[in-house]
Design a protein around this nucleic acid. Structure first.
Lengths: 136, 136
DNA sequence: AAGACTATCGCAACTTACCGCAATAGTGTC
DNA sequence: GACACTATTGCGGTAAGTTGCGATAGTCTT
């Protein structure tokens, strides 16, 4: 079952725009912002509206093809859902980002599940704080 | 040393506007958005511009009087720095919010400090996921 | 208390992210 | 392949938040 077939099977349509968003995410190595995706698509296809990119990211997220993460405070970053999950440590002073294994976060997830019945998505938001250098 | 003295000692000024922002945060029971603060101030002092509120929140945060938290994906919530810290669990489906003790998050903070030298501020961002009801 | 210095303010323009709507164009059916 | 159905698009608009700038007003010095 191709992505296109899966999308159609769910009553949605595989449009040029949707394909371009998917491809942009495929090309991106790491997390990428909606604005970057829009810019890279519009470099070749200027008639494609940024709002279309936003809506397609949301649609593809509902289908489970992409997910988003909040690295710093305001920008939403997107990535393909099939790329390996990891956590993020972001320094609030110098802005440095470090990726960490989900196994570091797993004990907390387990505890939240056990004590609160809460299924945490700990890859969704970065952990903010001070890195080794900035903490001094 | 009063707040005003402390602010002056740091080369900043205690203005009417800054005092109003501080008071609004003092009145607020829980986390409050900048927009709510601006609205409550402007109800009595309509000549005070929202941008002034935003800039004062940032200034007061630099001084350590207030901090901000990201509960859901988009809005920034503010609170006085001396109010008790706690973590948040936010359900991405129904939007419910649950406050949890920092002690639940402490083991992770300790591990991030030990393994990565990272001083995590785990009250800064809510943990997103699915609550007991929505997870089924 | 007057004056100088400059942090802060209010305003307006701007940016980013996201809707509402009419027009367009994928899809399944015949 | 033509057609009807409707998901999706591009456009214009909106709301929240941010920034540049000239004017204002705390604060310190004398």
């Amino acid at each position: 079952m191709t992505v296109a077939d899966d999308i159609r099977a769910k009553g949605m349509r595989m449009t040029v725009q949707r394909r371009l968003v998917l491809d942009a995410l495929r090309r991106a190595r790491h997390h990428i912002t909606a604005e970057e995706i829009a810019r890279s698509i519009r470099a070749s296809y200027p008639q494609i509206d940024p709002s279309t990119v936003y809506r397609n990211l949301e649609a593809l997220e509902r289908l489970g093809y992409v997910t988003h993460t909040h690295l710093d405070d305001r920008v939403t970053r997107w990535r393909r859902a099939d790329s390996p999950q990891h956590g993020h440590l972001v320094c609030r002073r110098c802005g440095s980002e470090e990726e960490i294994s989900m196994s570091v976060l797993a004990p907390l997830a387990k505890r939240l599940k056990g004590e609160h019945g809460f299924s945490a998505d700990l890859a969704h938001s970065a952990v903010v704080g001070l890195c080794r250098e900035c903490a001094g």
